[in-house]
Amino acid sequence: MNLRTLAGILLTLCLALLPLVAGPYWISVCVNVGLYALLGLSLNVILGQAGIFHMGHAAFYAVGAYTTAILNTLYQWPIFAAMPVAGAVAALVAVAVARPIIHLRGDYLLIVTIGIVEIVRIALLNDVGGYTGGSNGIFGIARPNFFGFKIVKTVHFYYLVWGMVAVSILLFYGLWRSRYGRALNYIKEDDVAAEGCGVHVTSYKLSAFVLGAFWAGMAGTLYAAQMTTITPESFNFMESVIIFAVVILSGGSILGVLVSAFLFIGLPELLREFSNARMLIFGLAMMLMMIWRPQGLLPPRPRRYHVADSGSGAGGASAGGAA
């Protein structure tokens, strides 16, 4: 068993048993970490795997949260029924905005995605359509009900959020280890070569974007249900920056995203005793961590393939020597 698998198992055990030892405060911090892990995992598909410079993930998070809030408070939809719809609405917004801009290069795409966060936030602030409640946001969102079990306590949310993280890890790991995940990596490495090999670059970029947005939308549902009150300021540019930094620091692997989410969300909590200087140290830590590990904490290892040993050396036209 290698080190990384061991670390994964240990982390799972710790997370499963944490509520037994931690107080409510730290459990709520870990709920928050779980939400950022979800956001990080979904952004990782876009930014880490496909290499699309996307710094506007909070926009889709916001769309999901607001969709949930509106469906729940205005139309009395249960939270879990609203969840797929929230994801779908976020995905639809992603299609609409990404379709015309997905071909933009690196930094041009970066500012456009930042612009999207700002446009969404301003639209929410200005109470677009009379549904979003302006700067007051929406309050009175109901607690979710899981087959008759009402999820109220922080510890319930803890298991809900981390359960969702676990499911996401399995799905995204599967995705990474498939032709789909490979195609995203080809695009990140060299999009011209990828297209030349037969990968439909635009459609893969777009679908990565939409998948990430769908997941962020569902994370938004969990956020809305946990907070019961949401305001536009919860989804500002700074949120996007944190999610972006979580993914870059992670190095692009799933375990890396988890560790990185703990560092980014947990660290400011540990720094609480520095009160005002907390964010100052946080900024400094961000710089130091990148200088310390420019490639990120845990870059993904190469995928493994079962290669049948067919006695190589047969029928080679070149003088390809032994490895």
């Binding site: 920056v241 972006f244 930094a245 870059i248 620091l249 005002n276 200087a277 964010m279 100052l280 946080f282 900024g283 400094l284 830590a285 961000m286 710089m287 961590m289 990148m290 200088i291």
Partner: peptide, 12 residues
């Protein structure tokens, strides 16, 4: 990301 960290640092 280092630049974003520097930004947060200066602002604070």
């Amino acid at each position: 990301v280092s630049a974003l960290g520097a930004s947060i640092f200066f602002q604070n």
